[in-house]
Design a protein around this nucleic acid. Structure first.
Lengths: 336, 336
DNA sequence: CACCCTCTTGGAAACGTTTCATCAATTTAA
DNA sequence: TTAAATTGATGAAACGTTTCCAAGAGGGTG
């Protein structure tokens, strides 16, 4: 069997308390004994049992990470940011997928409560009252990443979606576009759906362009919904010259549809996306987009969570910067 | 504080042993007492402490998942397969990234030993003697996914890379291509680098086409290396008519390069990839590829691991089927 | 020399479970 | 009717740590 602290104590001829103290670097242990203990540890290849330790100190050095779907392009980089930060702080992460199902979110929360996670990073649905009650029931601190508590009670790390949509729409306007369609997220997504649509509308209005309801389409951030929206756009009598898709994947879907029907990007349509996903970069032509700092969102979320666990912070939320990445999917309009 | 088994016992007026038995569905407890205990559990919203339980039963219901990089397009779907299967079997997963660094692999193994993971799914570097020694030291059962132990001692779930490469190369040959370049993986990757190159060569040879060393290029599976290889290909006096890239991302890189220089896919070059990643599907034109069953690899790996933990299986490895997905990136050659 | 500190060390208790040896009560067999 | 067997329930021990309390060993001081 694998060695325990008792075995080490015996071999080093000391008490278990002493061994524990050298493991945890308590100051009050003489150099000579420390050396003896260290040697015994070495000889037995002793590794402390984290489970036993956790039981005693009531901390597992484990963080639960709740996301919709790791195989969806948006999340892996967030998770990578989380895991890197976790490693630095000597935590581990348990990954749970929810598919945005409330039921699975609840189950995940239960698991994490039973396994005594020290904290939770929640990157799933928008938070509602009901969910907040579930959070409370676990008794585990939660930080939101890339989603929000509408009432702002739970700390979160996000970007300003409204402003980002405003900026990217303005980018199109500056290039001379006046008929700009949007392929928005779903109406029931208060975080990235509604806000981006609002930013788009505000940009139009502030430039004196009236918003045309016929140029507003709704998708679900996936390829097919972008593709389908483009099909509708192509059937318009008065086509837009530019399209703002609320996700890169929809942007690519739209571009694919157009190209398949014989149109060219950016000559016939200027297209911009949102997220800054690899697909947009590697597509041909590469798609201009607003890049969310996904890695940083993850690592920052982790750091914030740990700060909170240590009681080192007033639970304030953080809003990160986004960046418009100009590529080859847009063109300047000449005069009308 | 949150309720313990003692609190439940007290409230239900029974011994702790009894509570434990109803929690674990042991048969010998009377209906009346069971009811009483259940009610107490309900009233206190008692959730068993998995840490304490783990300490006692020496099983954490946790599996370590060691991968190179979750933000690399190939892995997320594997991980999703793993997590889904884990959930079904009531396990959780701890995710660890290694960037293919031996040092990080070692650290990951140590963490999992200390945290007493019940099993490990290893999806990183090819396994060598040294690593195998580290596996042994943890004392934790390991299953390999999408990588191999050259000596075949450790159970694994993979596809037949050589045969897949053979098939896809043949696909090109059947279309009439005779000058086929390959953008291979690195020479020091015995799993997916060398094997795919060998499948390519065998296909050529069996069709009586001699392999031309000038048509063999090496990349690292990433976009840029595909792009760079294409640049070299374009500089050849005698250009190939088809290109087999050992990853979809390289295939897309190569296609982008060609298109940027004014060539058309598939008119000027037929291109096929490998992996079956989203990028290949959404690229325009969509890239023909051999799709690895990544989700299934993950879930199968998980199931195999659990079978082994339960001692229900002779530790045999499993080889999964791949699938050639025909899209729009290749064209038939007329007679020469 | 007696006293009081300080510094180390040992060991027991506690963390919240599961399980095992006991025991009490009830049923079955003789 | 009594002995034996079966069933159900109890509580202590154990899992491997950490931490706290007590105590021993010096060392200074008056």
């Amino acid at each position: 069997m694998t060695a325990t602290i008792k075995d080490v104590a015996k071999r080093a001829n000391v008490g278990v308390g002493t061994v524990s103290r050298v493991i945890n670097n308590h100051p009050s242990v003489s150099d000579e004994i420390r050396k003896r203990v260290l040697q015994a540890i070495e000889e037995l290849d002793y590794k402390p049992n984290a489970i036993a330790r956790s039981l005693k100190i009531k901390s597992t050095k484990t963080i639960g990470v709740i996301i919709p779907d790791i195989s969806s392009a948006f999340y892996p980089e967030i998770v990578r940011g989380i895991e890197d930060a976790a490693k630095d702080l000597s935590y581990n992460i348990i990954l749970l997928n929810t598919d945005l199902k409330r039921e699975k979110e609840k189950e995940a929360l239960n698991m994490l409560k039973e396994k005594k996670a020290d904290g939770i990073l929640f990157i799933s649905n928008t938070v509602n009252k009901n969910l907040k009650r579930e959070f409370k029931k676990t008794g585990i601190p939660v930080v939101l990443v890339s989603t929000k508590d509408l009432e702002g009670e739970i700390p979160s790390v996000t970007i300003d979606n409204e402003r980002a949509a405003f900026d990217i729409t303005n980018y199109l306007i500056k290039m001379g576009h006046r008929k700009i369609a949007i392929i928005s997220g779903p109406k029931d997504d208060p975080n990235a759906g509604i806000t981006r649509l609002e930013g788009y509308k505000r940009a139009l209005l502030e430039s004196g362009i009236s918003v045309d309801e016929n140029l507003i389409f709704y998708g679900n951030y996936k390829f097919k919904s972008g593709y389908d929206a483009m099909q509708k756009i192509l059937m318009l009598k008065e086509r837009p010259t530019a399209i703002f898709a609320a996700s890169d994947t929809m942007a690519v879907g739209a571009a694919s549809c157009a190209m398949q029907k014989g149109f060219n990007i950016p000559e016939d349509f200027s297209i911009v996306g949102f997220d800054g996903v690899e697909l947009a970069e590697y597509f041909y032509p590469p798609i201009t987009t607003v890049k969310q700092p996904r890695y940083e969102m993850g690592s920052k979320g982790m750091q914030l969570l740990i700060d909170i666990l240590r009681g080192e912070t007033k639970q304030k939320s953080v809003v990160l910067d986004y960046e418009i990445i100009e590529r080859k999917s847009c063109r300047e309009m000449g005069g009308i």
